[in-house]
Nucleic acid binder design. Sequence first.
DNA 1: TTGCATACTTACTAATTAGTAAGTATATTT
DNA 2: AAATATACTTACTAATTAGTAAGTATGCAA
Lengths: 186, 186
Amino acid sequence: MSVTRERIMELAEELILTKGYNAFSYQDISSELGIKNAAIHYYFPSKANLGTSIVKNNFLRFEEMIENMDIRKFDEVKQLESFLRVYVKSAREQKICVIGSLGPDFNTLPEASQKELQKMTNRIIDWLTKLLETGRYNGVFAFKGDAHNRALLVLSTMIASLQMARVLDKQAFKDIHQSLIDDLIA
Amino acid sequence: MSVTRERIMELAEELILTKGYNAFSYQDISSELGIKNAAIHYYFPSKANLGTSIVKNNFLRFEEMIENMDIRKFDEVKQLESFLRVYVKSAREQKICVIGSLGPDFNTLPEASQKELQKMTNRIIDWLTKLLETGRYNGVFAFKGDAHNRALLVLSTMIASLQMARVLDKQAFKDIHQSLIDDLIA
DNA sequence: TTGCATACTTACTAATTAGTAAGTATATTT
DNA sequence: AAATATACTTACTAATTAGTAAGTATGCAA
Protein backbone atom coordinates (compact mmCIF):
# COMPACT_ATOMS: atom_id res chain seq x y z
CA MET A 1 0.00 0.00 0.00
CA SER A 2 1.15 3.50 -0.81
CA VAL A 3 2.27 5.63 2.13
CA THR A 4 0.67 8.72 0.56
CA ARG A 5 -2.63 6.90 0.28
CA GLU A 6 -2.44 5.95 3.94
CA ARG A 7 -1.60 9.50 5.01
CA ILE A 8 -4.57 10.80 3.02
CA MET A 9 -6.91 8.31 4.67
CA GLU A 10 -5.59 9.03 8.14
CA LEU A 11 -5.93 12.79 7.73
CA ALA A 12 -9.32 12.56 6.01
CA GLU A 13 -10.63 10.48 8.89
CA GLU A 14 -9.32 13.00 11.39
CA LEU A 15 -10.97 15.82 9.43
CA ILE A 16 -14.30 13.97 9.37
CA LEU A 17 -14.08 13.41 13.12
CA THR A 18 -13.18 17.01 13.91
CA LYS A 19 -14.84 19.16 11.20
CA GLY A 20 -17.40 16.83 9.68
CA TYR A 21 -17.89 15.39 6.20
CA ASN A 22 -19.34 18.50 4.58
CA ALA A 23 -16.83 20.90 6.11
CA PHE A 24 -13.62 19.24 5.01
CA SER A 25 -12.16 19.66 1.54
CA TYR A 26 -9.49 18.13 -0.65
CA GLN A 27 -7.56 21.36 -0.08
CA ASP A 28 -7.48 20.71 3.67
CA ILE A 29 -5.71 17.46 2.91
CA SER A 30 -3.41 18.56 0.09
CA SER A 31 -2.10 21.64 1.92
CA GLU A 32 -1.47 19.69 5.12
CA LEU A 33 0.34 16.84 3.34
CA GLY A 34 2.23 19.11 0.93
CA ILE A 35 0.77 17.42 -2.12
CA LYS A 36 -1.51 18.63 -4.89
CA ASN A 37 -5.27 18.32 -4.99
CA ALA A 38 -5.10 16.00 -7.98
CA ALA A 39 -2.89 13.58 -6.05
CA ILE A 40 -5.84 12.86 -3.80
CA HIS A 41 -8.05 12.29 -6.81
CA TYR A 42 -5.43 9.82 -8.07
CA TYR A 43 -6.05 7.58 -5.06
CA PHE A 44 -9.66 8.57 -4.38
CA PRO A 45 -11.40 9.65 -7.61
CA SER A 46 -14.27 11.30 -5.74
CA LYS A 47 -15.06 12.55 -2.27
CA ALA A 48 -17.77 9.90 -2.19
CA ASN A 49 -15.09 7.28 -2.73
CA LEU A 50 -12.84 8.73 -0.02
CA GLY A 51 -15.71 8.95 2.47
CA THR A 52 -16.83 5.41 1.81
CA SER A 53 -13.24 4.13 2.09
CA ILE A 54 -12.96 5.69 5.52
CA VAL A 55 -16.17 4.09 6.74
CA LYS A 56 -15.02 0.73 5.35
CA ASN A 57 -11.66 1.11 7.05
CA ASN A 58 -13.33 1.92 10.34
CA PHE A 59 -15.58 -1.09 9.95
CA LEU A 60 -12.52 -3.26 9.30
CA ARG A 61 -10.83 -2.02 12.46
CA PHE A 62 -13.91 -2.91 14.47
CA GLU A 63 -13.99 -6.41 12.98
CA GLU A 64 -10.31 -6.87 13.78
CA MET A 65 -10.84 -5.71 17.33
CA ILE A 66 -13.61 -8.18 18.07
CA GLU A 67 -11.69 -10.97 16.32
CA ASN A 68 -8.70 -10.40 18.59
CA MET A 69 -10.92 -10.40 21.64
CA ASP A 70 -12.44 -13.73 20.70
CA ILE A 71 -9.02 -15.29 20.35
CA ARG A 72 -7.75 -14.13 23.70
CA LYS A 73 -11.00 -15.29 25.32
CA PHE A 74 -11.64 -12.11 27.24
CA ASP A 75 -14.61 -12.21 29.57
CA GLU A 76 -17.62 -9.99 28.84
CA VAL A 77 -16.60 -7.13 31.11
CA LYS A 78 -13.13 -7.01 29.54
CA GLN A 79 -14.65 -7.08 26.07
CA LEU A 80 -16.98 -4.21 26.91
CA GLU A 81 -14.08 -2.29 28.43
CA SER A 82 -12.01 -2.79 25.29
CA PHE A 83 -14.92 -1.54 23.20
CA LEU A 84 -15.44 1.49 25.41
CA ARG A 85 -11.71 2.26 25.38
CA VAL A 86 -12.01 3.25 21.74
CA TYR A 87 -14.36 6.04 22.83
CA VAL A 88 -12.19 7.03 25.78
CA LYS A 89 -9.30 7.46 23.35
CA SER A 90 -11.49 9.56 21.03
CA ALA A 91 -12.54 11.76 23.93
CA ARG A 92 -8.90 12.36 24.86
CA GLU A 93 -8.14 13.37 21.28
CA GLN A 94 -11.14 15.73 21.10
CA LYS A 95 -12.67 13.57 18.42
CA ILE A 96 -16.14 12.17 18.04
CA CYS A 97 -16.80 8.77 16.47
CA VAL A 98 -17.56 7.92 12.84
CA ILE A 99 -21.23 7.14 13.47
CA GLY A 100 -21.62 10.32 15.53
CA SER A 101 -20.04 12.40 12.79
CA LEU A 102 -21.61 10.85 9.69
CA GLY A 103 -24.98 10.03 11.31
CA PRO A 104 -26.20 13.64 11.46
CA ASP A 105 -24.92 14.19 7.88
CA PHE A 106 -26.52 10.95 6.70
CA ASN A 107 -28.99 12.58 4.29
CA THR A 108 -26.17 14.37 2.49
CA LEU A 109 -23.90 11.33 2.17
CA PRO A 110 -23.38 9.40 -1.07
CA GLU A 111 -25.38 6.19 -1.14
CA ALA A 112 -22.34 3.92 -0.85
CA SER A 113 -21.27 5.70 2.34
CA GLN A 114 -24.79 5.43 3.74
CA LYS A 115 -24.92 1.71 3.08
CA GLU A 116 -21.52 1.08 4.62
CA LEU A 117 -22.36 3.15 7.70
CA GLN A 118 -25.58 1.19 8.16
CA LYS A 119 -23.73 -2.12 7.80
CA MET A 120 -21.15 -1.12 10.38
CA THR A 121 -23.72 0.20 12.84
CA ASN A 122 -25.80 -2.98 12.57
CA ARG A 123 -22.68 -5.08 13.04
CA ILE A 124 -21.72 -3.19 16.21
CA ILE A 125 -25.25 -3.49 17.57
CA ASP A 126 -25.31 -7.23 16.85
CA TRP A 127 -22.00 -7.75 18.60
CA LEU A 128 -23.01 -5.63 21.59
CA THR A 129 -26.36 -7.42 21.84
CA LYS A 130 -24.70 -10.83 22.06
CA LEU A 131 -22.09 -9.54 24.49
CA LEU A 132 -24.72 -8.07 26.81
CA GLU A 133 -26.96 -11.10 26.58
CA THR A 134 -24.13 -13.52 27.35
CA GLY A 135 -22.76 -11.27 30.07
CA ARG A 136 -26.12 -11.08 31.77
CA TYR A 137 -26.53 -14.85 31.53
CA ASN A 138 -23.09 -15.24 33.13
CA GLY A 139 -24.01 -12.81 35.88
CA VAL A 140 -21.45 -10.10 35.11
CA PHE A 141 -23.96 -7.64 33.67
CA ALA A 142 -27.24 -6.55 35.24
CA PHE A 143 -29.87 -4.70 33.25
CA LYS A 144 -33.60 -4.71 32.63
CA GLY A 145 -35.27 -5.47 29.30
CA ASP A 146 -34.17 -6.69 25.94
CA ALA A 147 -30.44 -7.01 25.26
CA HIS A 148 -30.87 -5.52 21.79
CA ASN A 149 -32.51 -2.39 23.22
CA ARG A 150 -29.73 -2.16 25.78
CA ALA A 151 -27.13 -2.43 23.02
CA LEU A 152 -28.77 0.47 21.20
CA LEU A 153 -28.72 2.43 24.44
CA VAL A 154 -25.03 1.70 25.10
CA LEU A 155 -23.95 2.69 21.59
CA SER A 156 -26.14 5.81 21.62
CA THR A 157 -24.69 6.86 24.92
CA MET A 158 -21.11 6.59 23.71
CA ILE A 159 -21.86 8.43 20.48
CA ALA A 160 -23.58 11.31 22.23
CA SER A 161 -21.15 11.54 25.13
CA LEU A 162 -18.37 12.44 22.69
CA GLN A 163 -20.59 15.09 21.14
CA MET A 164 -21.51 16.46 24.56
CA ALA A 165 -17.84 16.63 25.48
CA ARG A 166 -17.31 18.77 22.40
CA VAL A 167 -20.08 21.21 23.29
CA LEU A 168 -19.45 21.26 27.03
CA ASP A 169 -16.14 19.81 28.26
CA LYS A 170 -14.22 16.57 28.68
CA GLN A 171 -15.71 16.02 32.12
CA ALA A 172 -19.11 15.48 30.47
CA PHE A 173 -17.75 12.43 28.65
CA LYS A 174 -16.26 11.00 31.85
CA ASP A 175 -19.51 11.52 33.77
CA ILE A 176 -21.68 9.88 31.13
CA HIS A 177 -19.21 7.06 30.62
CA GLN A 178 -19.17 6.34 34.36
CA SER A 179 -22.97 6.43 34.64
CA LEU A 180 -23.21 3.91 31.82
CA ILE A 181 -20.82 1.49 33.49
CA ASP A 182 -22.46 1.93 36.90
CA ASP A 183 -25.79 0.99 35.35
CA LEU A 184 -24.49 -2.08 33.62
CA ILE A 185 -22.01 -3.85 35.84
CA ALA A 186 -23.68 -6.29 38.23
CA MET B 1 -42.29 40.44 12.94
CA SER B 2 -41.97 39.94 9.21
CA VAL B 3 -43.58 36.81 7.80
CA THR B 4 -40.69 36.34 5.36
CA ARG B 5 -38.23 36.49 8.22
CA GLU B 6 -40.19 33.82 10.05
CA ARG B 7 -40.39 31.57 7.00
CA ILE B 8 -36.63 31.89 6.53
CA MET B 9 -35.99 30.93 10.14
CA GLU B 10 -38.38 28.00 10.02
CA LEU B 11 -36.88 26.61 6.83
CA ALA B 12 -33.30 27.25 7.92
CA GLU B 13 -33.95 25.33 11.13
CA GLU B 14 -35.43 22.45 9.18
CA LEU B 15 -32.41 22.43 6.88
CA ILE B 16 -30.01 22.37 9.81
CA LEU B 17 -31.93 19.47 11.34
CA THR B 18 -32.06 17.47 8.12
CA LYS B 19 -28.89 18.38 6.16
CA GLY B 20 -26.68 20.01 8.77
CA TYR B 21 -25.18 23.48 9.16
CA ASN B 22 -22.39 23.09 6.61
CA ALA B 23 -24.54 21.41 3.97
CA PHE B 24 -27.32 23.97 3.70
CA SER B 25 -26.99 27.16 1.69
CA TYR B 26 -28.80 30.45 1.22
CA GLN B 27 -29.82 29.07 -2.19
CA ASP B 28 -31.65 26.18 -0.53
CA ILE B 29 -33.76 28.73 1.29
CA SER B 30 -34.26 31.30 -1.47
CA SER B 31 -35.31 28.76 -4.10
CA GLU B 32 -37.73 27.03 -1.74
CA LEU B 33 -39.34 30.30 -0.60
CA GLY B 34 -39.32 31.89 -4.06
CA ILE B 35 -37.25 34.84 -2.93
CA LYS B 36 -33.77 36.04 -3.83
CA ASN B 37 -30.57 35.25 -2.04
CA ALA B 38 -30.11 38.86 -1.02
CA ALA B 39 -33.50 38.88 0.69
CA ILE B 40 -32.10 36.46 3.24
CA HIS B 41 -29.07 38.68 3.73
CA TYR B 42 -31.48 41.56 4.35
CA TYR B 43 -32.83 39.79 7.44
CA PHE B 44 -29.73 37.79 8.33
CA PRO B 45 -26.59 39.60 7.17
CA SER B 46 -24.44 36.49 7.52
CA LYS B 47 -24.86 32.74 7.83
CA ALA B 48 -23.28 33.09 11.27
CA ASN B 49 -26.08 35.45 12.20
CA LEU B 50 -28.76 33.12 10.86
CA GLY B 51 -27.27 30.10 12.61
CA THR B 52 -27.00 31.90 15.91
CA SER B 53 -30.57 33.21 15.59
CA ILE B 54 -31.84 29.67 15.17
CA VAL B 55 -30.03 28.44 18.26
CA LYS B 56 -31.34 31.41 20.24
CA ASN B 57 -34.86 30.74 19.00
CA ASN B 58 -34.59 27.11 20.01
CA PHE B 59 -33.30 28.12 23.41
CA LEU B 60 -36.26 30.48 23.79
CA ARG B 61 -38.72 27.71 22.98
CA PHE B 62 -37.15 25.52 25.65
CA GLU B 63 -37.41 28.32 28.23
CA GLU B 64 -41.06 28.87 27.31
CA MET B 65 -41.79 25.18 27.63
CA ILE B 66 -40.35 24.84 31.11
CA GLU B 67 -42.06 28.09 32.15
CA ASN B 68 -45.44 26.74 31.09
CA MET B 69 -44.80 23.53 32.96
CA ASP B 70 -43.99 25.38 36.17
CA ILE B 71 -47.25 27.30 35.96
CA ARG B 72 -49.43 24.27 35.48
CA LYS B 73 -47.60 22.50 38.32
CA PHE B 74 -47.01 19.29 36.44
CA ASP B 75 -45.44 16.52 38.48
CA GLU B 76 -41.91 15.35 37.62
CA VAL B 77 -42.98 12.42 35.45
CA LYS B 78 -45.28 14.66 33.38
CA GLN B 79 -42.52 17.23 33.03
CA LEU B 80 -40.08 14.60 31.83
CA GLU B 81 -42.68 13.26 29.42
CA SER B 82 -43.27 16.75 28.02
CA PHE B 83 -39.56 17.18 27.55
CA LEU B 84 -39.20 13.80 25.84
CA ARG B 85 -42.20 14.53 23.62
CA VAL B 86 -40.13 17.12 21.78
CA TYR B 87 -37.79 14.32 20.72
CA VAL B 88 -40.65 11.96 19.87
CA LYS B 89 -42.00 14.64 17.52
CA SER B 90 -38.56 15.11 15.95
CA ALA B 91 -38.25 11.37 15.39
CA ARG B 92 -41.64 11.32 13.64
CA GLU B 93 -40.50 14.15 11.36
CA GLN B 94 -37.19 12.43 10.56
CA LYS B 95 -35.33 15.24 12.22
CA ILE B 96 -32.55 15.23 14.76
CA CYS B 97 -32.26 17.89 17.46
CA VAL B 98 -30.32 21.16 17.42
CA ILE B 99 -27.62 19.94 19.81
CA GLY B 100 -27.28 16.69 17.89
CA SER B 101 -26.92 18.57 14.60
CA LEU B 102 -24.68 21.44 15.65
CA GLY B 103 -22.69 19.50 18.26
CA PRO B 104 -20.70 17.44 15.74
CA ASP B 105 -20.15 20.62 13.65
CA PHE B 106 -19.16 22.61 16.74
CA ASN B 107 -15.56 23.26 15.64
CA THR B 108 -16.76 24.81 12.39
CA LEU B 109 -19.43 27.04 13.92
CA PRO B 110 -19.03 30.80 14.37
CA GLU B 111 -18.16 31.72 17.94
CA ALA B 112 -21.54 33.31 18.69
CA SER B 113 -23.31 30.09 17.70
CA GLN B 114 -20.93 28.04 19.81
CA LYS B 115 -21.56 30.20 22.87
CA GLU B 116 -25.32 30.09 22.44
CA LEU B 117 -25.32 26.33 21.95
CA GLN B 118 -23.28 25.90 25.11
CA LYS B 119 -25.63 28.16 27.06
CA MET B 120 -28.67 26.23 25.91
CA THR B 121 -27.11 22.85 26.62
CA ASN B 122 -26.08 23.91 30.11
CA ARG B 123 -29.54 25.28 30.74
CA ILE B 124 -31.19 22.00 29.69
CA ILE B 125 -28.78 20.00 31.84
CA ASP B 126 -29.47 22.24 34.84
CA TRP B 127 -33.22 21.91 34.42
CA LEU B 128 -33.01 18.13 33.96
CA THR B 129 -30.72 17.76 36.96
CA LYS B 130 -33.16 19.54 39.24
CA LEU B 131 -36.10 17.61 37.79
CA LEU B 132 -34.39 14.26 38.32
CA GLU B 133 -33.18 15.17 41.81
CA THR B 134 -36.63 16.36 42.93
CA GLY B 135 -38.33 13.41 41.24
CA ARG B 136 -36.08 10.94 43.00
CA TYR B 137 -36.66 12.69 46.33
CA ASN B 138 -40.41 12.46 45.70
CA GLY B 139 -40.11 8.79 44.85
CA VAL B 140 -41.25 8.95 41.23
CA PHE B 141 -37.79 8.41 39.74
CA ALA B 142 -35.33 5.71 40.68
CA PHE B 143 -31.70 5.85 39.61
CA LYS B 144 -28.23 5.37 40.98
CA GLY B 145 -25.60 8.08 41.33
CA ASP B 146 -25.46 11.79 40.87
CA ALA B 147 -28.49 13.54 39.34
CA HIS B 148 -26.24 15.74 37.19
CA ASN B 149 -24.58 12.69 35.66
CA ARG B 150 -28.00 11.18 35.08
CA ALA B 151 -29.17 14.37 33.38
CA LEU B 152 -26.19 14.18 31.02
CA LEU B 153 -27.06 10.56 30.32
CA VAL B 154 -30.72 11.36 29.59
CA LEU B 155 -29.90 14.22 27.22
CA SER B 156 -27.16 12.21 25.49
CA THR B 157 -29.51 9.33 24.99
CA MET B 158 -32.18 11.47 23.34
CA ILE B 159 -29.67 13.22 21.09
CA ALA B 160 -28.12 9.98 19.88
CA SER B 161 -31.38 8.07 19.55
CA LEU B 162 -32.51 10.53 16.87
CA GLN B 163 -29.22 10.08 15.07
CA MET B 164 -29.47 6.29 15.32
CA ALA B 165 -32.99 6.46 13.92
CA ARG B 166 -31.56 8.29 10.93
CA VAL B 167 -28.87 5.69 10.28
CA LEU B 168 -30.96 2.64 11.11
CA ASP B 169 -34.73 3.15 11.33
CA LYS B 170 -37.46 4.73 13.44
CA GLN B 171 -37.78 1.62 15.59
CA ALA B 172 -34.29 2.33 16.96
CA PHE B 173 -35.55 5.59 18.44
CA LYS B 174 -38.57 3.91 20.01
CA ASP B 175 -36.43 1.15 21.53
CA ILE B 176 -33.89 3.52 23.04
CA HIS B 177 -36.59 5.88 24.26
CA GLN B 178 -38.38 3.01 26.00
CA SER B 179 -35.20 1.68 27.60
CA LEU B 180 -34.48 5.13 28.97
CA ILE B 181 -37.92 5.43 30.58
CA ASP B 182 -37.82 1.87 31.95
CA ASP B 183 -34.54 2.70 33.65
CA LEU B 184 -35.78 5.89 35.20
CA ILE B 185 -39.35 5.44 36.35
CA ALA B 186 -39.58 4.02 39.87
C1' DT C 1 -46.41 66.01 -2.14
C1' DT C 2 -42.26 65.27 -0.47
C1' DG C 3 -39.41 62.41 2.19
C1' DC C 4 -38.30 58.41 4.44
C1' DA C 5 -38.41 53.64 6.05
C1' DT C 6 -39.41 48.89 4.82
C1' DA C 7 -38.80 45.07 1.98
C1' DC C 8 -37.08 43.54 -1.19
C1' DT C 9 -34.54 42.60 -6.49
C1' DT C 10 -30.83 43.06 -9.80
C1' DA C 11 -26.41 42.40 -10.73
C1' DC C 12 -22.29 41.48 -9.31
C1' DT C 13 -17.67 39.61 -6.89
C1' DA C 14 -14.12 36.85 -4.89
C1' DA C 15 -13.27 32.59 -2.96
C1' DT C 16 -13.79 27.86 -2.68
C1' DT C 17 -15.45 23.53 -4.26
C1' DA C 18 -14.95 18.75 -6.57
C1' DG C 19 -13.29 17.08 -10.54
C1' DT C 20 -10.54 16.36 -15.14
C1' DA C 21 -7.18 16.01 -18.87
C1' DA C 22 -2.77 16.06 -20.15
C1' DG C 23 1.95 16.13 -19.03
C1' DT C 24 6.25 14.33 -16.46
C1' DA C 25 9.66 12.00 -13.54
C1' DT C 26 10.92 7.63 -11.75
C1' DA C 27 11.10 2.90 -11.27
C1' DT C 28 10.15 -1.71 -13.15
C1' DT C 29 9.62 -5.03 -16.59
C1' DT C 30 10.49 -7.01 -21.13
C1' DA D 1 17.29 -0.06 -24.71
C1' DA D 2 12.41 0.31 -25.09
C1' DA D 3 8.01 -0.04 -23.26
C1' DT D 4 5.08 0.24 -19.48
C1' DA D 5 3.16 1.19 -15.00
C1' DT D 6 3.27 4.08 -10.91
C1' DA D 7 2.85 8.32 -8.72
C1' DC D 8 2.25 12.14 -9.06
C1' DT D 9 2.07 17.82 -10.96
C1' DT D 10 0.39 21.47 -13.92
C1' DA D 11 -3.23 23.80 -15.48
C1' DC D 12 -7.64 24.12 -15.99
C1' DT D 13 -13.16 24.16 -15.59
C1' DA D 14 -17.84 24.63 -14.14
C1' DA D 15 -20.57 25.07 -10.28
C1' DT D 16 -21.55 26.78 -5.93
C1' DT D 17 -20.66 29.55 -2.01
C1' DA D 18 -21.42 33.73 1.18
C1' DG D 19 -21.65 38.32 0.73
C1' DT D 20 -22.29 43.34 -1.20
C1' DA D 21 -23.73 47.60 -3.46
C1' DA D 22 -26.97 49.88 -5.75
C1' DG D 23 -31.46 50.16 -7.46
C1' DT D 24 -36.77 49.94 -6.95
C1' DA D 25 -41.60 49.44 -5.49
C1' DT D 26 -44.73 50.31 -1.74
C1' DG D 27 -46.70 52.39 2.11
C1' DC D 28 -46.77 55.79 5.64
C1' DA D 29 -45.72 60.09 7.98
C1' DA D 30 -44.75 65.13 8.01
